[in-house]
Amino acid sequence: MASEGGEGEGGDRQDGGRPLGSRAPEFIKRYRTLHLSWQVVIFLIGLAVVGLGVVMLPLPGPGWVVIFLGMGIWATEFVWAQLVLRWTRRKVAAAAERALDPRVRRRNITLTVIGLVVIGALLGWYLSQYGLVLPWKLH
Rank of each mutant, 00 (worst) to 15 (best):
M1R: 14
A2Y: 09
E4F: 09
E9Y: 13
E9D: 14
G11C: 13
R13T: 01
R13D: 03
G17P: 12
G17V: 07
R18L: 15
P19V: 14
L20H: 14
L20N: 12
G21F: 11
G21P: 11
S22K: 13
R23C: 05
A24Y: 02
A24S: 08
A24T: 01
E26M: 11
E26T: 11
F27K: 08
T33P: 01
T33F: 00
L34W: 00
L34V: 03
H35Y: 00
H35L: 03
H35G: 00
L36A: 06
L36K: 09
V40C: 02
V41M: 12
I42L: 06
I42H: 06
F43E: 02
F43D: 02
I45F: 10
I45H: 10
I45P: 03
G46H: 05
G46M: 04
G46E: 00
L47V: 05
A48G: 07
V49C: 01
V50F: 01
V50W: 03
V54E: 11
V54A: 08
M56C: 07
M56D: 04
P58H: 07
P58E: 07
P58L: 06
L59Y: 06
P60A: 04
P62Y: 04
P62E: 03
G63S: 03
G63N: 03
V65P: 05
V66K: 06
I67C: 04
I67A: 06
F68S: 00
G70T: 01
M71H: 12
M71A: 10
I73C: 04
A75F: 04
A75R: 08
T76N: 13
E77F: 02
F78R: 07
V79L: 12
V79E: 13
W80I: 08
Q82K: 11
V84L: 15
V84D: 06
R86Q: 12
W87H: 12
T88N: 10
R89F: 05
R89D: 04
R89H: 11
R89M: 07
R89P: 00
R90Q: 14
A93R: 13
A94P: 03
A95P: 02
E97D: 12
L100R: 15
D101R: 15
D101C: 08
P102A: 09
R103G: 08
V104L: 04
V104M: 09
R107K: 13
N108I: 01
N108E: 01
I109K: 14
I109H: 14
I109A: 10
L111M: 11
T112W: 09
T112L: 14
V113T: 08
G115A: 13
G115K: 14
G115Q: 14
V117N: 08
V118I: 15
G120Q: 10
L122A: 04
L123W: 14
Y126R: 12
L127S: 00
Q129T: 06
Q129H: 05
Y130N: 07
L134C: 02
P135T: 05
P135Y: 01
P135A: 00
W136K: 15
L138G: 03
L138Q: 07
H139R: 15
